[in-house]
Design a protein around this nucleic acid. Structure first.
Lengths: 149, 149
DNA sequence: TATTGTTATACTCTATAACTATA
DNA sequence: TATAGTTATAGAGTATAACAATA
């Protein structure tokens, strides 16, 4: 099936479709570790932001509190992370366990293999450009702070 | 929450995250039409590939036959598309109805507004570059047809 | 034998709403 | 009043497995 002129021009479709292909490969690659790409992302975010609470994790992942709960439960049940007392009595401070630290490195190695396979058609410069452009999406246009009409 | 060095480098994460932001905006924009971004994609694909069968539609969308069935049922129930006799007695040929043709144009207008809002920070050239790079993902590296070691 | 459509079923992911403890 | 965590429930979306009809 061919993508017509409209689909070729809708950036959201192109981004979403490429993302789907990348995630499908990542999912298959991570399957032996019994962890999904989204859960691996959560694990990495907790590692890089130790002491964060569940609500902040959810916001970073684009899901709500109760969905974040499920991710945290999954990771905690597998002893990859633990809930420690947070800044007040309502909040949990999320941290990787020693076992989590060890496993995240191993899984990350496999994830990088998948990522490099899927980006093999791009030069290093192209990858840099791609990521820079992706990170501009969903943000207001830059025009020196002046108000546009 | 901050994206650490690993997440910044994993292209699949960046693509998937940007795609999520784009799709979230598209979903909210299309909500009044009571159609999801994925279903709208299916509708556009059928319009641009009239006479295709359900299996081909599924492959184009990255889902299997039974999932494609649900999409086709949804669109057919709303009289946006119809199943006509296909190239043999097993297959359906999918076509937009006159009503579907009318509606797809209206929905597309709204979808473009969302897409342009989310890409407002990029120049026209940057959008072209972004789409070109996205379309290289998930394909083997180009090296003039010569075999790499 | 293989393919297409179809159906039933189950699983994953997510959201909503309500509740509690705390702020 | 507002916020964090929690729980139960429901709704999408998808996959698997089976079957009938056709190739």
């Amino acid at each position: 099936m061919k993508e017509g002129a409209d689909l070729l021009r809708i950036v959201g479709y192109q981004v979403q479709r490429a993302g789907m292909l990348m995630v499908m490969d990542a999912r298959a690659t991570l399957a032996p570790h019994e962890i999904s790409p989204a859960k691996m992302t959560a694990l990495i975010l907790i590692r890089d932001n130790p002491g964060s609470d569940q609500t902040a994790l959810g916001k970073a992942l684009g899901v709500n509190r109760s969905s974040a709960m499920k991710l945290v439960n999954f990771l905690a049940d597998r002893n990859l992370i633990e809930r420690r007392p947070g800044r007040d009595l309502r909040t949990n401070a999320l941290h990787l366990t020693p076992d989590g630290e060890r496993q995240v490195s191993a899984i990350l190695a496999d994830l990088r293999v998948s990522d490099e396979r899927m980006t093999a058609a791009l030069t290093a410069d192209e990858v840099k450009t791609l990521v820079a452009l992706l990170r501009k999406l969903g943000r207001p246009a830059m025009n020196g702070g002046r108000q546009s009409l």
